[in-house]
Write a protein that binds this DNA or RNA. Structure first.
Lengths: 217, 217
DNA sequence: CCAGAGTGGAACACTAATGTTCCATTCTGG
DNA sequence: CCAGAATGGAACATTAGTGTTCCACTCTGG
């Protein structure tokens, strides 16, 4: 099996995944036809790689998670002062682009309804099923915006408490919420005026730094 | 016309609107049946007040806009130092609750697709219509998270520049983005851990204040 | 060249939501 | 009490998206 143009499959799959991130992060309810069009493949081909919409969404989240983890590794959050590490983390996360809003949406304040996020959701059986919450939030270690943050992140923040670069009044998971919301703000700010990517990044870093450091130094 | 239980209509309408804000702010793709159920009215009745989904959405946004404006008036953003005014504004906005995420979603970074936001959108005519943008962004003065902010808000920020309570490096519309994203973060933070409403508000105010004030005072 | 993987288009049945109509019931003011 | 407003339920046609099947076409490696 897969004896011939074997690299082609991976390439097509990736193209679909990239398109899905671009399209579905902006509008989670977009049709598969739109995604296929954006990926420049036929809808048939999309279904060949991801039989159901849920498969595509799952693969997308896995991809996002993967990029997120890589970005975090690049940020070396175990080095330097807490605030320095936070700064590097923001820089790396900022470059995630669409993945940002994708992860951001995946757990807003809402219950997101019975479906899994905001899709038309032809789900077939979880309709009157009062016992939903079918483990939709059983991530492994939680790097995303919501939920409680993971140990390494918390360690970074506590390091900041100790070295005086982060206000001890701010709990680690609040710092995490804060970072994500600032990034999201930056990303959305980027869309409107003529602000350059660099300028916006500067504003984000500036604001996060200010929000996080102790009030009177 | 409307000679009899005339106040009843307004009450029902408001109940539907409130339910719509609660439901659709958490999940913009929720069905009208869910909204009707939440409002404790029949779907028929809902359609009687808002013939098409778009009518409901429009009315919802108008209601949100109205609450937003009232909150802003209560904040008296023309008084005291810039930072004080910002603080009051955040407090008032924080109490908007679901309206917050509603307004927040209404203009994320995305193009939101051809439909108007994230609904299944049985729209019937704006499909291949390249000349859409049927004035969906022709708000009057822009108080919401996106876009450029209005004069009064800008004046408040500039007052902050002058009195030294706001960093002149931060443009007014960035300050606005910042406020909104912090509020959103707070609201979503509220959903997860056992944090109390008051505690979260304190964190939000603390973070906004820190993010906005000049780096070294 | 040529077998087979990979693809795209068309057609199909199916589902869920929407929007509409009709009618029976309940509430309310005079 | 009673006329009319207001409502809710049921049934209906319509629409958009989904998932599937089938077939013709195009590459590519051996």
């Amino acid at each position: 099996m897969t004896t011939a143009p074997t690299g082609s499959r991976a390439r097509t799959r990736q193209a679909i995944l990239d398109a899905a991130i671009t399209i579905l992060s902006r509008n989670p309810a977009a049709s598969l036809g739109e995604v296929a069009a954006a990926a420049d493949v036929g809808r048939t081909t999309l279904h060949r790689y991801f039989p159901e919409r849920g498969d595509l969404v799952a693969a997308m989240q896995a991809e996002a998670e993967s990029r997120l983890v890589r970005a975090r590794l690049r940020a070396r959050i175990a080095d330097d002062t807490g605030a320095d590490a936070v700064r590097r983390l923001c820089q790396e996360y900022f470059d995630l682009g669409d993945v940002l809003s994708l992860l951001f949406r995946d757990q807003g304040p809402g219950d997101q309804g019975p479906g899994d996020s905001a899709e038309p959701a032809h789900d077939k059986d979880n309709k009157d099923d009062k016992t939903d919450k079918h483990g939709q939030n059983d991530h492994d270690d939680e790097n995303g915006p919501g939920g409680s943050c993971d140990p390494e992140f918390a360690a970074m923040v506590r390091r900041g408490y100790a070295d005086g670069s982060i206000d001890p009044d701010l709990p680690p998971d609040w710092v995490q919420s804060l970072i994500w919301s600032q990034l999201y703000a930056g990303w959305s700010y980027l869309a409107e005026p003529g602000a350059s990517r660099h300028e916006v990044l500067r504003l984000v870093l500036r604001s996060v730094e200010g929000a996080v450091r102790p009030l009177r130094r």
